[in-house]
């Protein structure tokens, strides 16, 4: 019996495929906005959500998603109000999320073992009903990330310009935050809350070593995400190691390979076209051509009566409407 015939492995692979697609999709926008750690921040907040679920006896996935959405929106609003920068807003929720989670878990009387399944994922325990939720949420994330691509791209590329084109920037930013929160909870079962951000950021960082356009970065990142998720799950089954960690280590290995390949490609390009980036200096007056006066009966000096003009490091003499400058044994037109 191969691993593909095992029902729990089929579910694990499907969950991995969807996580591998949706995490880099939303991650591309986060990286473009230079908020790469937002996924991590939301992951930490979701810990509080999971703990809340365990404490109140409701489904941890449900409470995690709600708390993550609230937290992500809070990051966005704090950032938008201006006074606190994005990274400070993030760190506030990092600490709040993990402290709240540990506190509530203690109150719920649950130990570290329960929390661990959410922190580092527990793919093999994904149930059929879990899978429906994962499929539904991942589909929503992908539809938004692809369908609203041009709008989200503009907002992440240049927020002020996007506002002047009349886009609802605040709403779109909030949408990205909510999508990130949804993705985090989707990925909670596969790679776990502590490593989910890696799956949002590392494939994007890997892709952009080799790409030039946003679109190709987006698709390459999703491709890498799917690849490492499936390969990681299969490897972890065969080698009997933790799937979440295996996925992330594989993703990082891809990054190292791509970074080296990218550097080599760029160097090769630079050697082949060494002057490609240099622009012609149109409009900048070039050095005056060296014109020697035809014949010159006398040497200009203090006394010759021709007006003197200071010209940088030397003196020119006005001679019948021309400027003459001494150059060795002759006179140049200046």
């Amino acid at each position: 019996m191969t691993l593909f015939e095992l029902e729990f492995m089929q579910r694990a692979l499907l969950a991995g495929l969807l996580t591998g697609l949706s995490a880099p999709a939303i991650g591309t926008y986060l990286v473009q906005r230079r908020l790469a750690l937002m996924g991590d921040g939301i992951g930490h907040i979701a810990i509080t959500g999971v703990a809340l679920g365990l404490l109140t006896g409701t489904a941890p996935v449900l409470t995690a998603i709600l708390v993550a959405i609230v937290g992500a929106s809070a990051i966005e609003l704090i950032r938008a109000r201006g006074k606190t920068s994005g990274d400070v807003a993030l760190s506030l929720l990092f600490y709040g999320g993990i402290a709240g989670g540990v506190l509530l878990i203690g109150l719920a009387g649950q130990g570290a073992a329960t929390l661990n399944t959410y922190l580092f994922g527990s793919l093999t325990t994904v149930s059929a009903s879990d899978l429906y939720v994962v499929v539904g949420l991942a589909a929503v994330v992908l539809i938004v990330a692809i369908g609203l691509g041009p709008q989200l791209f503009a907002v992440c590329q240049d927020e002020e310009f996007a506002r002047v084109t009349g886009l609802r920037v605040q709403l779109l930013n909030l949408l990205i935050a909510v999508m990130a929160a949804v993705t985090v909870t989707v990925a909670m079962r596969t790679v776990g809350l502590l490593l989910v951000s890696a799956l949002m950021v590392v494939p994007v960082a890997t892709a952009q070593q080799l790409t030039r356009s946003f679109r190709s970065t987006f698709t390459t990142a999703c491709g890498i995400g799917v690849l490492v998720c499936l390969a990681g799950i299969i490897t972890s089954y065969n080698a009997n190691v933790a799937p979440g960690a295996t996925i992330v280590v594989l993703a990082l290995a891809c990054f190292v390979v791509a970074a080296i390949a990218g550097a080599l490609v760029r160097r090769r390009r630079a050697v082949q076209a060494p002057l490609a980036d240099e622009e012609p200096e149109v409009g900048v007056p070039g050095p005056e051509p060296h014109v020697v006066t035809d014949e010159h009966p006398h040497a200009h000096s203090q006394k010759c009566g021709h007006p003197k003009v200071e010209h940088g490091d030397h003196v020119d003499y006005v001679h019948d409407g021309h400027l003459h400058a001494a150059h060795g044994d002759h006179w140049d037109e200046h």
Binding site: R33, Q157, R215, T217
Partner: peptide, 13 residues
């Protein structure tokens, strides 16, 4: 931005 984008993509926005 933080992700590569082509001249065409930026102008399209």
């Amino acid at each position: 931005g933080g992700v590569p984008a082509t001249v065409h993509e930026v102008v399209s926005s």
